[in-house]
Amino acid sequence: MEYRFLMDFERQMADEFLKSIGLELENDVDETLCCFENGQMIGTCSYSKNVIKCFGIKEEYRGEGIASSLITKIQNRMFDKGIYEYFVFTLDKNVQIFKSLGFKEVAQADSVVLLEGGIADINKYLNNMLKQSGVDQTKNRAALVVNCNPFTLGHLYLIERAAMENEEVIVFVVEEDRSAFPTDIRYSLVKKGCSHLKNVVVIKGGRYIISSNTFPSYFLRKKDEKLNVYTKLDATIFGKYIAKVFNINKRYVGTEPYCDVTNEYNKAMLSVLPSYNIEVCLVERLTKDGRPVSASIVRKLLKEGKIDEVKNLVPITTFEFLNTDEGKRIIENIKRRDLPH
């Protein structure tokens, strides 16, 4: 039995192998480790940043400790690269394999489980976030989880509603680096845009607010299952851990009749959060000229060079940023890119 990391041009082999067992190799994988027997691939495991994924072993070779070897070796490699926290999304039938290697279960939704290993510890992480936020844990508060790519009047409207109806509000800005506007910028625009609201605290969401990019779907049979499962898992983690640590009793979400992703999210919130004693408040989105004010419309207008039309859709703080050198660079990027985000 031979274990080795694949060279980039060999990735195709791993993808074919995974496909033969009903899985697949995801595009954002950093490295792939494989196990060979007599020159034939019989098992593989990959990682992307700190997430271990695309893990599968040929049926007839299961139960021989190959899984343990693959996972241990890949963690060692990740450690050498300076990654000390490891996350795995897997089907519940594989949970024992990871648990026996020191991973701890974080949450489960349908048949998908999130586990963490290494020095990852969700409770410690969240308590640290709480301390850094300076929020008063003895008080209840309402929460919003937002992407804000960029921060618009639509987002502000939602946050102002929450601020009016609750003593304290906390806004979590999702951290993920696939958006046109980088995390630091998105966060800073939300913070600046809310600075007039004295009872609102804005913080970065941290790694346990899962963006759809972090969530792998290679093990889901139906591709459209991914959204449904990941939003439920995200909601479960929010309800089980984040809401407890930050003392959240309400979550505000905006409706958008034309967006499948938002609807899926809202459905997941509504089905999961009440069981954690969190009230879900659905608020009709702000509309201008009959259309909901959304970040995707703003990006579309920026791509078309219609920056004047953007002025009506964003707070002055966001508009001012768009006119800075950095803002202009981001707009140029949007014009050149062809991505939905």
Binding site: S68, T72, F79, Y84, L101, G102, G118
Partner: peptide, 18 residues
């Protein structure tokens, strides 16, 4: 530097130092 030794196999101990 951070470093490690050991494994998560039965009867072993996995040590990470920082």
């Amino acid at each position: 530097n951070p470093a490690k030794a050991g494994s998560l196999e039965s009867n072993d101990i996995f040590i990470m130092v920082f």
